[in-house]
Design a protein around this nucleic acid. Structure first.
Lengths: 206, 206
DNA sequence: GACTGTGAAGCCATTCACAGCT
DNA sequence: AGCTGTGAATGGCTTCACAGTC
C-alpha cells in the first residue's frame, strides 16, 4: 500500500514523543493524547498507525513502549545506520557534533573535505578524510547514508561521487537542487527556502 | 485565493534558479527549462506562477530578470529582514556563519545564549548577548524573525520569550514540537526526522 | 463510557489537455 | 510552430462519523 510521506514524517515525531512519555513514566496513551503532544488530531494519529496494523486496544488506547517499538521498526531504526558527512565547514562540523543523530543510532563514521588543513584532524572524535578517499571508505565500511554539507557549487560533484560509491540515501543541505538516479533516495533541507516561506506568510499575512 | 504551501516553497527555488540563469547571461526562459533546472514539470511551474499573475508571453516564455523580480516581491524578500538566532552552540554558530542568509538579505542582528563564557564574544561579527537581554533587543531593534537553535528541553521556553517580545515568525531547529499562538508563523526543520524518512524508504524500498 | 479502526466524504494539490496569443 | 494560461480531471491526504471492542 502507498503510504503518504507526511505519515512517515509524523511517525518519526510520534516516536520521539512516545520516548519522552516513557521516560516520564507514562505507560499508556490514547490517540488524543498523542495528538495533543505533537499538535495533530486524534483521527490523524489513528489513521497514520492504521496503515501499518492494529497497535491499540479499543476502548483503552496504546501501550507506550510497545507502540514505540512498532514505529521504530516501521521506520527502520531498530538497527543502526552508518553515515558520512561531506563538508567540514561550519555546517558539517555542527552536524558532526549534533547529539540527536547518535541518540537515534545514526553513526557518523567519517567526515570528508578537500581542505588540507582540516584533513587528519578530528571533529567530535570523528576523523576528517580527504574527499579523494571517500569512494573507498564508503565501499569498505558499507556506508548507507551520505549527508552533503558543502557549498552549492560543489554539491552535485559530491553527490556524483557518493552515488558512484554506492551510497543508498543522501540528505542534502546545500542550497541547490541535486540530481540523483531513481534508485537513490534523497531529501533536501533548505534553510533559505524555509525562511522565505516565513516571509511570504508574513507579507501575505495569511 | 488560497495558495498551496508547496507552491510557495517552489517559488523560492525558482527564484534561486533564475538568479543563477541571469548570472550565466540567460535572459529568456520557458517553463520547461525552469522545470528542468529544478526537477519539476512545466505545467507545475506555469500553475505556480499563474496563482499570482501573468508573467510570461505566450509563444515566447518569461524574461528571467523580470520574473525573478516578481517572485522576489511575492515572497516578500524585496526588502530586508531582521533576524536573531537563539543558541550559540554548534548549530547556532553554523547558522550565524551561513552565507546564504545574507545573500538573500536576511540580516542576523544578534545571537543569544545563557552561557556566561559565550556572552560578549562575537560569532562572524555578530555579538552574543545574554538571553535575559533578548526581550529588550527584539523590541528595540524591531526584529521580525527568530531562529531557535537550542536543545529540545529549552526550546519552548525560548519560544515563549520570543513571542512575548513580539516576534512575528519562528524557525525552529530544536528536535521537538513547539507551541505558538495563531498569529505567530512558525516552521520546524527537524534533522532527525529527515534522516528517518530516508531509512523508512530504504527499509521499505519504495 | 471510552477509545480504536476504518469506509466514506471532503478538501487540496498536481497533472492533463487545449484554447489563446505571438 | 512554440509556449503560456487555465478549466477540468485526476490523484492523494485529511477529516468525519460511526461500527466495533474492551
Amino acid at each position: 500500500m502507498k503510504i503518504p510521506e507526511a505519515t512517515v514524517l509524523r511517525l518519526s515525531i510520534y516516536s520521539r514523543y512516545l520516548k519522552q512519555l516513557w521516560e516520564k513514566g507514562v505507560t499508556n496513551v490514547s490517540s488524543g493524547e498523542i495528538a495533543e503532544g505533537v499538535n495533530g488530531t486524534s483521527a490523524q494519529v489513528r489513521k497514520d498507525l492504521a496503515y501499518f496494523g492494529e497497535f491499540g486496544t479499543r476502548g483503552v488506547g496504546y501501550k507506550v513502549r510497545i507502540l514505540d517499538k512498532q514505529i521504530t521498526e516501521i521506520l527502520g531504526i531498530n538497527n543502526e545506520w552508518e553515515v558520512v558527512i561531506v563538508g567540514a565547514g561550519n555546517l558539517g562540523s555542527a552536524l558532526t557534533h549534533y547529539k540527536g543523530f547518535k541518540e537515534r543510532r545514526f553513526n557518523i563514521q567519517a567526515v570528508f573535505d578537500n581542505d588540507e588543513n582540516k584533513i587528519g584532524s578530528k571533529i567530535n572524535d570523528v576523523l576528517v578524510y580527504s574527499i579523494t578517499d571517500m569512494d573507498n571508505f564508503i565501499k569498505e565500511n558499507d556506508i548507507q547514508i551520505g549527508i552533503v554539507a558543502v557549498p552549492a557549487t560543489y554539491a552535485q560533484g559530491v553527490v556524483d561521487i557518493l552515488i558512484k560509491a554506492g551510497i543508498k540515501s543522501i540528505l542534502n543541505f546545500a542550497p541547490t537542487v541535486i540530481s540523483v538516479p531513481e534508485h537513490v533516495e534523497h531529501r533536501s533541507v533548505d534553510l533559505v527556502v524555509n525562511l522565505e516561506v516565513l516571509t511570504y506568510n508574513l507579507v501575505n499575512k495569511k
